[in-house]
Design a binder for these strands. Structure first.
Length: 702
DNA sequence: CATACATGAATTTTT
DNA sequence: TTCATGTATG
C-alpha cells in the first residue's frame, strides 16, 4: 500500500550545497516538495553562523502567510532572539518600510495612506466618470498591469493598443493626480515608488544597499519586472561584500501568475545579470509517491525547459492515479464525496504514515480551476455532512464592518485621505448627506485641498446650512481629538479602552443593528468588530504573531498600528486547525499539500482554460497553454499518496449542455491503462462499503 | 419610474 | 458564492 515519503532529518547534498553557498548570487530551483523552506531557514542559520547580524538578513516573500511561516520556522531553528531582528517581509511591507523612511524623496509625506482595491475602484469610478463597476474594474486591472511593468500614465499612453486602453491610460493620468492629492498610494506603488526612489536618490540608495548582507527571495518565479529591478538595486552597489549577496528560490515549473504580471523572464535574466550565479536544482521530492511524480513529470515535459530539472523520489510507486470520468458536475461531486468517504472507511489501510491511523477530513483537498466550480461540491459535501472550508473565501478584513473601522484608522493617520474620509464621515450616518458632501467636494476640488482641510473653512460655511456645518465641524473636532489620543496611547489595555470608547462615541454597535435587517447578522458583525479591536490592541501591546508562540515586540501607539494596518492585514486565521476538507482553486493551492487530492473538471476549455471569443496572437496562446500546463503540474504535485483526476462527459456551456472533452493534460500524464481503470465491480463494492460505513461527520461550517 | 425578486453566468488573486 | 441583467409590480 502507498506510503508517503518522509523528509529526512538531515539535508541532502543539493540542499547542503544551497545552504553553504554564501559567497555570491545563488539560484535554487526548488521542485515541488523538495524542501525549499528548509533550505531557506537553514541558510539563514548558516548566515548567522557566518557572522551576519540578524538585521542584516532579509527574507522576502509574497504573502503575509508565507512571511509568518518563515518567521516561525526560522525561530524554531535559530531561536527567538536571533529571529526577532531578522527582516522577514513581503515585497510590499519592505516597500512600506522604504517609503516610510524616505518617501519624502518621491513627494510623499511621512503619513501616507495605502488604498485597498475597493478604494482604488472608487477613485477610478469617480475619476473616469463610470457608473459601471465592470468598466472601473477593467481599468483597475489594466492600470495595475501597466504599473507592474514599470509604466506610468505617459508610458501607458504610448503602449495602449485599442480604444479601451487609450481611455484607461487617460483615466490613469487622472488617477495618479488624485492619489498625489490624497497623499495615498496603491499596492503597486509600494513596489514601484521605492524603486523610483532608490534609482533617483544616491544617498538613500547607498544606505539601503548597505543595509543587507544577504537577501533571500522566496517564490522567485512570481516576481514581476518592477520587483526584479527593486531586488537588483538592493543587492547591487559598490561594496563587494554586499553586492550580489542573495539567494533566489523558485521553480519555473510552478510559475502560474503570468496573468498578473509575473514573468519567468526574471529567471532567464538572472544568469545574464549575474555571471557568477550558482544554479542549484533541488530534485529530490519528499512529498509524493512515484506514480504521482511520474504523472507530474510527464505533464510538465510538454513545456520547453528553462533549466534542466526532473523530480524523483526514493519511495515506492504507491497507488495508481485514479481517472474518474463523470457524467456531469453533480455526478462529479457525488463521486468526490464517495472518494472521501471510502478512503476514510478504509481507514489506516492506506493511511499516510505521518497521519495517525484514521484519515482526517483535513487530509483531503478538492482543487479546481475556477471558483464557481466549488458550488456543487459544497452542496454535496453539505448533504453528506462532511465539513469543509472554501479557501480564498471572504477575508476577515474584507468585511464591510472591518473596512468601516479601517477607514477611520486610516483617516487618523492621514487626514487628507479622501476615500477614508468619505467612508468614515458617513458611517454611522451623522446628518451629513450627499448634498453637503457634494458641496464639500466641490470646494476641496476648487482649492485643491483635501476634504478634511476644507472642513473648517469660512467660505465653505457660507454655502451650507448651519446644521450641516455644525455636523461637519463636530466630526472634524472629534477626529482631531481621537487622533491626539491615538498618538499617545500605547499598550494593549489602554488601546482597547480607547478603541471601545471610540466605537461607543460614534454609536457603531447601534449602527450595525439599525442597518442590518437580521439581528443575528448584526450580532455576528459586532463580534467581528470586537475581534478586530482585540487584534489591534494586541498589536499595540507589542505582540507580533499569535500562532506558534508570541513574539514580544516594541509597544506601539494606536496611531502606529493604524499606520501599518492595510499591510499587516494577514488573516486572523481562526479555525485554521479544524478538521475539514479543503476546497480551493489550483492557484490558491500552490505551496500546500494534502495526502489525498481530487482534481476536478479537468476538461478542455476549463483546464486548459479557453476564453470564449478572443483574438490573440499564436505565441500568446502558446504561452498561455504553457502556464495552464504548469497549473496542472501544480495541482498534481499537491498530492502525497492519493490523486484522483476527474473529467466531465457533459459540460454546461451557456444554456445548453455540450459534450465534455477530457483535457489534453490527462493524456499527457501517460497513466498506464492498467493503473487507471478500476474494475467496475470492485468499485461498486467499495462504494457500497463506503456508503454504509458509519461516518462520524461533524456538521459543515455555516 | 423605482424597487424587488428571479434568473443566469462566471478564470486564475495578493498586497 | 457574487454580480448584473431582466421582468414584474407598486
Amino acid at each position: 500500500m502507498a506510503t508517503a515519503p518522509k523528509p529526512p532529518d538531515t539535508l541532502n547534498p543539493a540542499q547542503l550545497q544551497a545552504v553553504h553557498h554564501l559567497a555570491g548570487p545563488c539560484l535554487v530551483l526548488a521542485g515541488a516538495g523538495s524542501g525549499k523552506t528548509r533550505v531557506i531557514t537553514h541558510k539563514i542559520g548558516r548566515l548567522l553562523q557566518a557572522g551576519l547580524a540578524p538585521k542584516e538578513i532579509a527574507a522576502i516573500t509574497f504573502t503575509n502567510k508565507a512571511a509568518q511561516e518563515m518567521r516561525e520556522r526560522t525561530k524554531a531553528l535559530v531561536g527567538a532572539r536571533a529571529a526577532k531582528d531578522l527582516v522577514v517581509a513581503t515585497f510590499h511591507s519592505l516597500g512600506v518600510r522604504i517609503l516610510r523612511a524616505d518617501g519624502s524623496k518621491v513627494g510623499l509625506k511621512e503619513q501616507f495612506s495605502i488604498l485597498d482595491s475597493d478604494d482604488v475602484m472608487g477613485v477610478l469610478r469617480d475619476a473616469g466618470g463610470a457608473s459601471d463597476n465592470k468598466l472601473a474594474r477593467s481599468w483597475q486591472w489594466t492600470i495595475s498591469l501597466w504599473k507592474n511593468q514599470g509604466l506610468d500614465s505617459s508610458g501607458a499612453a504610448g503602449v495602449a493598443k485599442d480604444d479601451h486602453e487609450q481611455v484607461a491610460a487617460r483615466v490613469m493620468k487622472l488617477y495618479e493626480e488624485r492619489l498625489a492629492a490624497y497623499q495615498a498610494v496603491d499596492f503597486d506603488d509600494l513596489i514601484s515608488l521605492p524603486l523610483k526612489l532608490l534609482q533617483r536618490d544616491d544617498e538613500a540608495r547607498a544606505r539601503w544597499q548597505g543595509m543587507f548582507g544577504h537577501v533571500l527571495v522566496d517564490e522567485y518565479q512570481d516576481t514581476n519586472s518592477v520587483q526584479y529591478e527593486l531586488l537588483k538595486l538592493l543587492v547591487s552597489g559598490p561594496d563587494p561584500r554586499r553586492a550580489g549577496q542573495f539567494t533566489a528560490v523558485g521553480d519555473d515549473d510552478q510559475s502560474i501568475y503570468g496573468w498578473r504580471g509575473a514573468t519567468i523572464a526574471n529567471l532567464r535574466r538572472l544568469p545574464q545579470d549575474w555571471p557568477d550565479l550558482k544554479v542549484i536544482p533541488l530534485e529530490q521530492n519528499y512529498r509524493s509517491t512515484g506514480n504521482i511524480l511520474r504523472a507530474a513529470n510527464n505533464v510538465i515535459a510538454g513545456n520547453p525547459k528553462l533549466f534542466e530539472k526532473k523530480l524523483w523520489s526514493e519511495f515506492g510507486d504507491g497507488d495508481p492515479v485514479r481517472l474518474m470520468e463523470c457524467d456531469g458536475e453533480e455526478h462529479e461531486a457525488e463521486r468526490a464525496v464517495a472518494f472521501i468517504q471510502s478512503l476514510r472507511a478504509q481507514g489506516g489501510a492506506i493511511a499516510d504514515d505521518r497521519a495517525s491511523g484514521q484519515i482526517k477530513f483535513a487530509d483531503f483537498a478538492i482543487l479546481y480551476r475556477a471558483n464557481h466550480q466549488a458550488r456543487v461540491f459544497e452542496q454535496k459535501l453539505r448533504a453528506a455532512q462532511i465539513p469543509y472550508k472554501v479557501s480564498g473565501g471572504q477575508s476577515f478584513f474584507d468585511r464591510a464592518e472591518i473596512k468601516d473601522l479601517c477607514a477611520w484608522l486610516r483617516l487618523l493617520v492621514n487626514q487628507d485621505d479622501d476615500p477614508a474620509f468619505l467612508r468614515a464621515v458617513t458611517t454611522p450616518k451623522r446628518g451629513i448627506g450627499h448634498t453637503t458632501l457634494g458641496k464639500l467636494g466641490e470646494y476641496a476640488g476648487r482649492w485643491k485641498t483635501s476634504l478634511f482641510e476644507s472642513l473648517f473653512s469660512d467660505s465653505l460655511a457660507a454655502q451650507l446650512g448651519a446644521k450641516a456645518i455644525g455636523s461637519l465641524h463636530e466630526f472634524g473636532r472629534y477626529l482631531n481629538d481621537l487622533e491626539h489620543r491615538a498618538r499617545h496611547t500605547t499598550g494593549a489595555e489602554d488601546a482597547k479602552a480607547l478603541l471601545l470608547d471610540w466605537l461607543k462615541t460614534i454609536g457603531y454597535e447601534q449602527h450595525l443593528y439599525d442597518s442590518e435587517d437580521s439581528e443575528k447578522l448584526a450580532a455576528s458583525r459586532w463580534t467581528n468588530v470586537l475581534d478586530f479591536v482585540d487584534w489591534v490592541s494586541r498589536r499595540c501591546g507589542g505582540e507580533i504573531r499569535q500562532e506558534g508562540g508570541t513574539f514580544e515586540g516594541e509597544k506601539q501607539t494606536v496611531l502606529q498600528v493604524a499606520q501599518t494596518i492595510s499591510v499587516i492585514i494577514s488573516l486572523a486565521e481562526r479555525g485554521d486547525e479544524q478538521d475539514v476538507v479543503t476546497l480551493s482553486t489550483l492557484h490558491a493551492s500552490k505551496g500546500l499539500e494534502w495526502p489525498h487530492v481530487w482534481l476536478a473538471g479537468i476538461n478542455e476549455g476549463l483546464l486548459p482554460f479557453k476564453p470564449d471569443a478572443e483574438d490573440v496572437a499564436a505565441e500568446v496562446l502558446a504561452s498561455r497553454l504553457e502556464e495552464e500546463r504548469r497549473l496542472m503540474y501544480v495541482g498534481i504535485t499537491r498530492a502525497r499518496t492519493t490523486l484522483a483526476v476527474s473529467t466531465l462527459r457533459r459540460r454546461k456551456k451557456g444554456r445548453d449542455t455540450v459534450q465534455g472533452i477530457p483535457s489534453r493534460f490527462i493524456a499527457e500524464m501517460k497513466l498506464h491503462e492498467a493503473s487507471t481503470r478500476e474494475d467496475p465491480r470492485e468499485r461498486l463494492k467499495k462504494l457500497r462499503a463506503a456508503l454504509s460505513a458509519k461516518v462520524d461527520a461533524a456538521p459543515p461550517p455555516a
